[in-house]
């Protein structure tokens, strides 16, 4: 499998706080990669750095072999690298279908292409994907009226609507009803296998990430602590210490 995302020695500081220090990780095309670590270990900061939310202080980030370090979030998204947010972000005052329609790939075009009605095929696809995450019944509802868990699912569907090559998911199961988590894992897998989206997932729920990911990277205090297949990371003593604290 070829390397899709290559993060090389990325450092990010906020004033005196070093949020990421010399972090390196790779994501291969077609896999599901996991990113874990205790609270404050710099996972979301790393997502921000990759997706262009802020400039990095050192290192380089290659997507499909080209550096995206100096790009902002919009051009990065247009290359096919999207992220979702831990605190879900959707367009509150628009309906679910509208949220989906404006997330389609063709909405990233120039002004002239925007000055056309939403194609019927796009609305149909929006309906399909809303069905995929179980929100078809809510398609005409205001997105802001959905529960937090449903908004999370909507945000996931919006990302899929964009047909990204790589999707960064920040805690997809946080706030989701535990009985629905298995269904969500299944959908993440299907997005990966059926829709061909490579995933990089931040997750606190160990059962979920150990089940889902092919490879896992663990961060602690802004550095990479361990890396490997789930079995290795789970049994790594340093990882256990980082989560539980060392006496």
């Amino acid at each position: 499998m070829s390397v899709l995302l290559d993060v090389q020695n990325v450092t990010k500081r906020f004033g005196g706080v070093v949020a990421n220090e010399e972090v390196s990780l790779t994501v291969k095309r077609g896999e599901i990669a996991g990113l874990i670590g205790p609270n404050g270990s710099g996972k979301t900061t790393l997502f921000g750095s990759i997706a262009g939310a802020h400039a990095v202080d050192g290192g380089d980030i290659l997507f499909e072999g080209r550096s995206i370090r100096h790009l902002r979030s919009a051009p990065i998204a247009r290359r096919g690298l999207l992220r979702t947010y831990q605190q879900t972000r959707i367009y509150d005052d628009m309906t679910c279908t509208e949220n989906m329609a404006i997330s389609a790939r063709e909405a990233q075009g120039g002004l002239l292409s925007l000055l056309r009605p939403v194609p019927r095929a796009t609305n149909a696809r929006a309906g399909d994907l809303l069905g995929f995450v179980g929100l078809y019944e809510k398609r005409d509802d205001r997105a802001g009226s959905l529960s937090f868990g449903q908004q999370k699912l909507l945000e996931f569907a919006m990302a899929l609507m964009n047909e990204p090559k790589l999707l960064l998911l920040d805690e997809p199961t946080a706030g989701i009803n535990p009985t629905l988590i298995n269904g969500l894992i299944d959908r993440l897998r299907r997005a990966n296998t059926e829709l061909g989206v490579t995933l990089l997932v931040i997750e606190h729920n160990m059962r979920v990430i150990m089940n889902l990911a092919h490879r896992i990277t663990c961060l602690a205090h802004g550095r990479v602590l361990a890396e490997g297949v789930p079995e290795e990371v789970r049994n790594d003593k340093r990882v256990l210490d980082a989560y539980l604290g060392v006496a």
């Binding site: 972000r89 509208e98 404006i102 997330s103 909405a107 925007l114």
Partner: peptide
């Protein structure tokens, strides 16, 4: 048109609209 939706998207969450390309 899609342009109308794009305006609403900017109103509801500008950063999200940027992040969606």
């Amino acid at each position: 048109t899609r342009f109308g939706l794009a305006l609403n998207a900017i109103r509801d969450d500008h950063d999200k609209a940027d992040a969606m390309g």
